[in-house]
Write a protein that binds this DNA or RNA. Sequence first.
DNA 1: CCATAGCTATATCCAAAACATATCGAGATG
DNA 2: CATCTCGATATGTTTTGGATATAGCTATGG
Lengths: 316, 316
Amino acid sequence: MELRHIRYFLAVAEEQNFTRAANRLHIAQPPLSQQIKALEEDIGTALFFRTPHGAELTDAGQALYREVSGLPLQLQQAKETALKAANGETGKLRLGVTGTAALHPAIPAVIRQYRRRYPEVELTIEEANSLALAEGLLSDRLDAAILRPSDPDPTQLIVQHFLEEQLVIALPSSHPIARAHDTIDIAILKQEPFIMTPRTLAVSLHDAVVHVCQEAGFEPIVGQPAPQIASILSMVSAELGISMLPESMQQLAVKGVVYRPIKKTSIKVELAVAHRAQHPPKPAINFAATVNQQRVAREALLAEKPAISLTDINQD
Amino acid sequence: MELRHIRYFLAVAEEQNFTRAANRLHIAQPPLSQQIKALEEDIGTALFFRTPHGAELTDAGQALYREVSGLPLQLQQAKETALKAANGETGKLRLGVTGTAALHPAIPAVIRQYRRRYPEVELTIEEANSLALAEGLLSDRLDAAILRPSDPDPTQLIVQHFLEEQLVIALPSSHPIARAHDTIDIAILKQEPFIMTPRTLAVSLHDAVVHVCQEAGFEPIVGQPAPQIASILSMVSAELGISMLPESMQQLAVKGVVYRPIKKTSIKVELAVAHRAQHPPKPAINFAATVNQQRVAREALLAEKPAISLTDINQD
DNA sequence: CCATAGCTATATCCAAAACATATCGAGATG
DNA sequence: CATCTCGATATGTTTTGGATATAGCTATGG
């Protein structure tokens, strides 16, 4: 039995007439009679009474009609379902976000836009440091991630630039430098212990901090290591040292911690979207594309009003 | 898209390997590759990743698999459903039973046997006089009927003999003849008014009664007409006359009515099963066949023990 | 009552397409 | 590096779905 037999059967059943059904199917009447006959032989029983004015269903034909009448629609929908999956309109997206970026307003903005565009994709979001995210992508625990890129193997991950942000200094509010300066010249931090994420866990942020100091002519004193943004701020608040963080972290107000911009530095930290290079799920590709649209929109806005505050850039 | 494409797709999806799938399908590998390619073009997206060690489903392939994996089974069941309908194992049987036979023990016996044999057939039973039953068959309100046959048009109805029964006299218990005789010689009923169903409604029973009387040398005095068995017995009980009824009606005990066998008569009334001659529904044919089996069984029993009481013949 | 119209079935032919065979190219493996 | 396994491609063959012509049947109208 082939689908053709079903289509032909349904046409004859609905037209109650072989000739009309053949016209509707855009074939001649004799092959239609043949195919119906073949179907009847395959099933093992007559499906139609042939009358001088047409054909009508036998009991077996009626039973068959009830069983298969929905089949063409069912198959059409199966095709559409497959296509939607291929276009990333259904399925799931396991998204990872680096802990030092989750608070950046552009992140919720891009997630919101993606959800609006692909409402049928099941989205799960996980927060981790950039190293864990990259590993998650490679081991197929994540489909896409927003992370601070180190320079990964480009044959394994595709990483696409999203945005850059400047660094700011986080220091205890009681600290003399915080009291004395609105913007900070890095050089005066030469003697301060820097609370940082270990380089293995967050290469690019760590390196950016070191570069800023080197630019100012010294190597930072590495204080207490801290894997999480929350623990960094706790330690600063506890006056164990100072820290240098992406400016979006100012969103996180912690008692006993103040933020100060850095005077004159060109060093910035980058945020990017990444997914596997081989067989990336279409939802991941679509998410990266959404990120890219956001990037273009952001850059247009920033070019127009360069003095704009980051928090204002939050359009969809 | 044809079913072949679905079957091939499922085979490759399950084997995760074109070559093995081709073996399973009893075709060579190249045509399988071609058909899968054609399916992919029809749907508009790739369904498999081809790897050096086989093939695995893309997201679209997985979505399609979920949609169509049940299809072969579904079609197989559709075929079986159609076949069952063709064999009369499903569907409905609208059965009519003549009012003057419903109490004959062979009727529930045959219905019980049919239901046991065809439990999935939806059975509805309707009681009416033989004329109404014949009309019901012709107008497709009934599929089969147990009735007392007149001689209908054999091109319209197929009527098959079931059983014969003798007639008995029903008379008021207060009637002098009832008091005086255990078996009745018809001749002494010459002056009694006969309560009968009108001939138009029940030809054969009416004619049998008349024949019995003619055999005894007189024409019966036609008393009150009554269309239903219940009303006949009421009237007898009300002493409006006597009646002659099939012996199975003795099952119906009515206060004030007694039954007496007839002395020496060869006249019997017949019970038969009937269905339409053209396009009889298979359930009707099966019912007639069941009736026929019962008839054969009954006749064998009666030949063996001719003195048996009718009520004892109630086997399945 | 015959002729006609409308229907499906049959016979024959052709063309499309499903399949088989042979071979190729790519990636994994010893 | 040779080999093995896999799917893809090229080409020829066979099957089969479909077209055309026509027959056979049954209602219907003159």
